[in-house]
Amino acid sequence: MSFRWDLVWSSMPMLLQGARLTVQLTAIAVFFGVIIGTIAGIARLSKGPQKYIAAVYIDFIRGTPLLVQTFIVFYGLPGIIGQPIPAYTAAVLALSINSGAYVAEIVRAGIQAIDKGQTEAALSLGMTSAQTMRYIILPQAFRQILPPLGNEFIALLKDSSLVSVIALEELVRKGQIIIGRTFRPFEVWLAVALIYLVMTFSVSRIVDFLEKRVKNGV
């Protein structure tokens, strides 16, 4: 048997449909992940009880597999709240919460990298801690953490394949479906891999571009 290029091409439309969902899930999870991560990252550096809540959250998420977290949200949570959670919602929830923990560590490192003199200057002008964080520290921290944040987005794009286990028809799940019909795993998985490659490559180019633009701006 030889390699069948025609199968790679003919499965593309359906795979791209799945890729669309992958991109959508990742984009939404990145959005919420950055919000959750920023809050958790700041909390991690604060004094007071929220510091420990943030630490437990970050350690729990980073110390357990995303697959298990997805199961907890999709199969476990409905039993607690008394109603089923749609696969799409569960996936967004699991990915966002997961990403938030990794972003929190990136944000924490970014904040810590900003010179202490910046905070002192802002406070000496009479600004509150919150104003200092918002106008002085975070804008500088986000410029610095753009590269690791980009890497996190790429990781999330790939990790989103795990939500195929809750029957969400993203890219990997679509591949499985096609293989079920064609019995040609090599061609189909290769096609899936190529699509992931194009997506991750595009994201890294976009991050590079943003990084350069930010550098020129300062």
Binding site: Q118, E120, A121, A122, L123, L125, Y135, P139
Partner: peptide, 20 residues
């Protein structure tokens, strides 16, 4: 404290301007 700080302008050795 914040009122007091508003009344005491401070200039630092390392300038501490906001670079962004």
């Amino acid at each position: 404290l914040r009122q007091v700080r508003q009344e005491m302008g401070m200039v630092f050795q390392s300038f501490n301007l906001f670079p962004h």
